[in-house]
Design a protein around this nucleic acid. Structure first.
Length: 478
DNA sequence: ATGTAC
């Protein structure tokens, strides 16, 4: 199939390859069905080819089934770099919302428990959890608090009384990203964050109360503690102003660094620095502090959610299934051409998906594999998947992260009215609360790809296996 | 994603 100036070779029903041309060092590989490929903007393939031309890239540049056009790297993109081969780290390859991710909580409730209380639940969650552009919370960090948060992540949040130590076992990195260097986080980034802890933010961020609508894999669902009609909560948000400020600042520095290190950038947005350089290390230190910010943020929001449930539905017991980020660069051991190497894996709008037995998965889940949390668009379904063993060879253990946009925000806001969407969804039993009706219009379900097609493609490509489908009942929307 | 432009 031809997409723009690129020719895609069909490797299998769900895998497509762009052979290296021009400055590409490795192939580009896209996991998707034919219809998803057809729907992808030509820009996705151009961006994938650009990523494949960066120094030190290993094996291939990958795009997940939900891939769409992003800043420099495609969203839904995965690229691993070897520091010993001149590999780079890129702020645009992580994304501006550092460690944006999803956390899933079980509630111990069934849909019958919440049905009579949905409006109150929606109102109270909306009242209690700050949401929207520039939203601030009740937490105001001084210098010491900021330092503790940037180093400690969710562990810091638990020490401050937000949640309990058991939560930490079910968060990537056990809630605390090692190697964070707060000294690399600018005063401006700190200032932007000091009143924003425990806030959802805007755009596609949300907190959703959902019902388990269907189980695909009974054994894994049992291991995850999920059954049909159970109520679960998805929290989708990131590192707010802090992550954005870090991304913005380092992007500028990386444009200069790339030129100093004689790295040819096919696109300025791919600005990067060698991993083994002062700036590369500084970014990694700052980015890891950003990861801790996002982990702490989701931990505090969890605490606020527990407070609301204790009030509205006191028999609820909110326990953490898992917390996984989808905008990161992480050092991981991967087998490449027979040998094991330490690679810097960029996942931008892509979820880590470790298979069964992986040492970094919490012990209680290790036998089955890592939960892969896929947030659908507002008013549509979400999915829980599980990592596979073959994911190691397919995508450095990565899968999709959501439905993926099919239409720009601008286009969506012209096509839908927020108020009517909220009313239509309410008629279908879905309570939406949002400070921005324009935001709701931009996030219209119709502006996204079909999430079921995305997870089906991820499963059939072997990236992850479907476990459960979730349908929304209450959504607090950024 | 984002004090939706510094």
């Amino acid at each position: 199939m031809n997409k723009g100036e690129y020719t895609l070779q069909r490797e299998s029903e769900f895998a497509w390859r762009i052979d290296p041309t021009g400055k590409m060092r490795v192939p580009g590989v896209v996991y998707a069905d034919e219809s998803l490929i057809e729907g992808m903007d030509d820009k996705v393939f151009e961006q994938l080819a650009n990523v494949a031309s960066l120094p030190g890239i290993v094996q291939a540049a990958y795009a997940m089934p939900d891939a769409h056009w992003g800043y420099g790297f495609p969203i839904g993109g995965v690229a691993a770099f070897d520091p010993d081969e001149g590999g780079v780290v890129s702020a645009g390859g992580v994304g501006f919302d550092i460690s944006c991710g999803v956390r899933c909580l079980r509630t111990g409730l069934t849909v019958d428990d919440i049905e009579p209380h949905k409006k109150k639940l929606a109102d109270q969650l909306y009242k209690h959890i700050p949401v929207g552009v520039g939203s601030t919370g009740r937490i105001h960090l001084n210098d010491k608090g900021m330092q503790g948060m940037l180093r400690g992540g969710a562990r810091w949040a638990v020490e401050q009384g937000f949640g309990n130590p058991e939560d930490l076992e079910h968060i990537e990195e056990r809630g605390c990203m090692a190697g964070a260097d707060p000294a690399e986080v600018s005063d401006r980034a700190r200032k932007r964050q000091q009143d924003e802890m425990g806030t959802l933010g805007s755009g596609n961020h949300y907190l959703e109360v959902q019902r388990v609508a269907e189980i695909y894999d009974r054994n894994t669902a049992a291991a995850f503690g999920l059954q049909v009609d159970d109520v679960v909560i998805f929290i989708h948000c990131g590192s707010r102003g802090l992550g954005h400020q870090i991304g913005t600042e380092f992007l500028k520095y990386m444009v200069l660094a790339a030129s100093q290190h004689k790295i040819e950038l096919p696109d300025r947005e791919l600005a990067c620095a060698p991993i083994n350089s002062e700036l590369g290390q500084a970014y990694l230190g700052a980015m890891r502090a950003g990861i801790n910010c996002a982990l702490a943020n989701r931990q505090i929001i969890t605490h606020l959610t527990r407070e609301v449930f204790a009030d509205v539905l006191p028999k609820a017991d909110l326990t953490l299934l898992f917390d996984v980020s989808h905008n990161t660069c992480k050092v991981e051991a991967h087998r490449v051409q027979g040998g094991e190497r330490k690679l810097y894996v960029h996942r931008k709008g892509a979820t880590r998906a470790f298979g069964p037995g992986h040492p970094e998965i919490p012990e209680t889940l290790r036998a089955v594999g890592q939960p892969v949390l896929i947030g659908g668009s507002m008013g549509t379904e979400s999915h829980v998947l599980v990592g596979t063993e073959q994911g190691a060879d397919l995508s450095f253990h990565s899968a999709c992260h959501g439905a993926g946009r099919a239409m720009s925000r601008h286009q969506a806001s012209k096509q839908w009215r927020g108020r009517s969407l909220v009313d239509e969804l309410a008629e279908r039993g879905i309570q939406i609360r949002s400070p921005s009706m324009r935001g709701v219009a931009e996030e219209a379900p119709g502006a996204y790809k079909d999430v079921r097609a995305v997870v089906d493609a991820a499963e059939k490509a072997g990236l992850a296996r479907k476990v459960a489908r979730l349908e929304p009942h209450v959504c607090v929307k950024g």
